[in-house]
């Protein structure tokens, strides 16, 4: 993956524009997540909260069950490899309040362990298996972390940025 920065340019940051629901959540989240010392932020139009990896499952449970949040729908779970750390990203949605937020947890690439959220949302099952496959993040307590997209015995974590792509010869 060759990155082509133009020399001498500082990269601009994406503009943050929270809508009403986002602003309400921004005020709400510090209280709801107080126990977990979240690091709050915003990404374009979504509120983000970064917590300790070990707290993820409990934070998710709190977010799902607190009456003001009711994040009962796990929209998306993914891992981003920032090289110095892996970021596990949960996009949460509430079908009752119709608001959305992002929960993040940073783990080190060598010790990538996060508690599973399959007990909070069953739908996390395949997402976690996929992330385990591609990024080597272990979801502690997951009932079955067998390879999902890759075949049994695949070496390496192809999602990570340091994965060496095999060279194909012309034929």
């Amino acid at each position: 993956m060759v990155e082509r920065h133009r020399p001498g340019h500082t990269t601009p940051q994406a503009a943050v524009a929270l809508d009403e629901k986002g602003q309400a959540l921004e005020r709400l989240l510090p209280d709801v997540l107080a126990r977990f010392n979240p690091e709050l932020g915003a990404a374009v139009d979504l509120v983000t909260a970064t917590v300790n990896p070990s707290d993820v499952a409990e934070a998710c449970l709190t977010l799902r069950d607190s009456p003001e949040c009711r994040f009962d729908y796990l929209t998306c779970l993914c891992v981003v490899d920032y090289e110095e750390h892996l970021q596990v990203v949960y996009h949460l949605y509430s079908t009752t309040h119709k608001h959305m937020m992002v929960l993040k947890a940073n783990v080190s690439p060598e010790q990538a362990v996060v508690p599973t959220v399959t007990s909070v949302w069953v739908g996390a099952d395949w997402f976690e298996r996929e992330s385990h496959d591609l990024f080597g993040v272990t979801f502690d307590g997951h009932p079955n972390l067998a390879p999902l997209l890759l075949y049994e015995g695949f070496e390496g974590y192809p999602g990570r940025r340091n994965f060496e792509m095999p060279e194909y010869a012309e034929w």
Partner: peptide, 24 residues
């Protein structure tokens, strides 16, 4: 610009989401 964005759309099969992280 640098940043991350998540968009949702209604596909025939359900909700598609695209999570895009850019470093500029």
């Amino acid at each position: 610009p640098q940043g991350e964005v998540y968009v949702r759309g209604e596909n025939p099969r359900g909700e598609i989401g695209v999570y895009l992280v850019s470093n500029g």
